[in-house]
């Protein structure tokens, strides 16, 4: 099974490969509901595996978290759409230039709640990855996202965005069609949409390309996602003058890009737990956790008048970078 093979491609997961092989061999040999020594051995191995997995995933370094966030088997927007939403009605195109597959938009239902889903799609197989530019959206992607979000506002639908991008695409066409403008306008307009917005970083939250669709009332992060101003490699290449395994590791640590760090900094409101061993080992459970969190947040936001949401949303971001009292980042004295 290709799936089992790639579950061990990260160095820190390799120790599990042998355990899993023993478990599989025993599973093949032992009949269900027998109480042999073999069955007891199987139970012991399963428990050991669970412990090892938990231990590894509780002690991940930030750079390892980045590797998990990029795991080829990690569920992406289209997986979560399939697992969490019902009756997905995809909407295409920005009505200006084209349809960027790196951002997926459409109407959907989560539980009984009707909403608009917007998410980055990185692609699973080679063809899809190439079409999606590995999740790096072009200006038309952001313009499509904004156009559909305005539809949601018009028809009173809440918005759910799933963030998963290494960053906006750096290319000639992207620049000439106004990559910076597309991102800036998306953020500005999102900040004043009169409808609830819930965002969650499901994998990579790479810089402006991620934030462009995450100016939300509530922002969550999956446990093993990362979110920062730049990728560890980009940061290492500039500040350490060279990106290699060692400097990437240091940059990942310095950037404080994990879900826990972002929670402490107030960048995200919640960390959504993943199943032990990461979302790629059990996408169904990951989707279940996420759906639970999304539903709760959407219900909570329903209490507010849509017209009052923009001011609250603006204040949410207004406070970041400045706090009052003790551990202030900047002091506020002397304002006239």
């Amino acid at each position: 099974m290709s799936r089992a093979a790639t579950n061990y491609e990260l160095a820190f997961e390799k120790p599990l490969a042998e355990l899993d092989r023993s478990i599989r061999d025993l599973e093949a040999a032992v009949l269900p509901e027998t109480d042999s020594d073999q069955a007891q051995e199987l139970a012991r191995l399963r428990a050991e595996r669970e412990d090892r997995l938990r231990e590894i995933y509780e002690n991940l370094e930030p750079w390892e978290t980045v590797r998990i966030a990029r795991h080829p088997l990690r569920p992406q927007t289209r997986d979560y759409v399939r697992l969490m939403f019902k009756d997905f009605c995809e909407l295409h195109g920005d009505r200006r230039f084209g349809d960027d597959p790196a951002i997926v938009t459409g109407f959907a239902r989560v539980g009984s709640i009707k909403c608009l889903v917007v998410g980055h799609q990185k692609g699973k197989d080679t063809a899809e990855k190439v079409a999606c530019h590995f999740g790096c959206a072009h200006p038309e992607g952001y313009r499509k996202a904004l156009a559909k979000m305005k539809l949601a506002e018009k028809f009173g639908l809440p918005i759910v965005t799933l963030v998963d991008t290494p960053g906006a695409f750096p290319g000639i066409g992207a620049e000439q069609r106004g990559q910076a403008e597309a991102i800036a306008v998306c953020m500005k307009e999102m900040s004043r949409l009169q409808t609830p917005i819930v965002s969650v970083v499901i994998g990579e939250g790479g810089s402006g390309g991620a934030l462009a669709i995450a100016v939300a009332d509530r922002v969550g992060m999956l446990e093993h996602a990362w979110y920062s101003v730049i990728s560890p490699e980009g940061c290492a290449a500039i500040l350490w003058k060279e990106a290699n395994e060692k400097t990437n590791r240091e940059a990942a640590r310095a950037l404080k890009l994990t879900a826990r760090d972002n929670l402490a900094l107030g960048i995200v409101d919640d960390v959504v737990p993943e199943p032990v061993g990461g979302a790629h080992r059990d996408p169904e459970s990951a989707a279940e956790n996420l759906q639970h969190w999304l539903t709760e947040r959407l219900r909570e936001l329903k209490r507010f008048k849509p017209a009052n949401l923009p001011a609250r949303r603006r204040l949410r971001f207004r406070k970041l970078g400045v706090t009052d009292g003790g551990a202030s980042l900047v002091s506020l004295e002397g304002d006239e």
Partner: peptide, 21 residues
């Protein structure tokens, strides 16, 4: 955006854009 303040620098983009709205 300034790398040394990580995601907090990133958030200044949303903050300034929202103020401009």
């Amino acid at each position: 955006a300034r790398m040394q303040e990580g995601a907090l620098s990133l958030m200044q983009m949303a903050k300034t854009s929202a103020a401009l709205a």
